[in-house]
Design a protein around this nucleic acid. Sequence first.
DNA 1: TAAATTCATCGTAAATTTACGATATGTAAT
DNA 2: ATTACATATCGTAAATTTACGATGAATTTA
Lengths: 102, 102
Amino acid sequence: MNLTDTSIVRSAAIARALGHPARIAILKILAERETCFCGDITELLPLAQSTVSQHLKALKTAGLIQGEVGGVRTCYCLNPDGIKELKSLLTNLSTELNDTCY
Amino acid sequence: MNLTDTSIVRSAAIARALGHPARIAILKILAERETCFCGDITELLPLAQSTVSQHLKALKTAGLIQGEVGGVRTCYCLNPDGIKELKSLLTNLSTELNDTCY
DNA sequence: TAAATTCATCGTAAATTTACGATATGTAAT
DNA sequence: ATTACATATCGTAAATTTACGATGAATTTA
C-alpha cells in the first residue's frame, strides 16, 4: 500500500489537526460563536496567547479554519470547505471500517 | 473551556491515532482482510517490522484494534467497540461543526 | 534439543510537537 | 508622533513521535 496516496495523506493530516484537545476545543468554540477573535479564544482556554496562536495556525494550515484580519484583530471562523472535507473524510473512513472482528 | 473534558480528550486521542498515513493504511488493511497477522501488514507497507509493530501498538492503545496471540503469530483485527466510538465521537463532532462563516 | 519463525521490545537518532515568555508587526487611538 | 492594543512570530526547552536495526521472548518445526 502506498503511504503517499493523496487521500490517505490528507486524511491523516486532518486527523492530526484534530489530534489535540486544545484544537478540538477551538473548533467547538468557533462553531458556537459568531465573534471569534484570537483573544476571545485565549480567554476561554488555559493556554498562553502564543500557544493559542500556534494551534490556530495548525488548524489553518490543515484548512479547517480561516483567519481574516480586521483592524487590530484577526477574526477566525470555520472554513466551510475544510469542514466539508473533514465530514466526508470521516464518513468515508467510517463506512470503510466495517468490523470484521468476531 | 476545560481541556481535560473526557469527550474532548477521547476525541483527540482517537484523532491522533488516525493522524499518521501508516495507521490509516493499517486500519484499511484490517477492514479489508480477515487474516491480519503482523507480518501480512508489514509486507504491504514500506516500513520495517518494528515500525509496523509500533503503529499497531498505538492503534491498540487507542482502542481501535485488537491483537490476539495465536501461536507464534498475533492476529490483529478492528475493535468493534473502538470503531463504534470513533464513529460516534467524530460524527458528533462533525455535526457540531456547523459552518458559521460567510 | 536445536533451529527457525513471528512478533514485541530495547536502544537510539532525527524530527516534530507543545508550551512559554519575549519580541516584532501592524492597526487604532490619543 | 506616541501610545496602546491584538496578534504573529521568534527563541527555546522539554516531551513526544517516528524510524530503524538489534535483541528478546515465545512457539513451532526439524
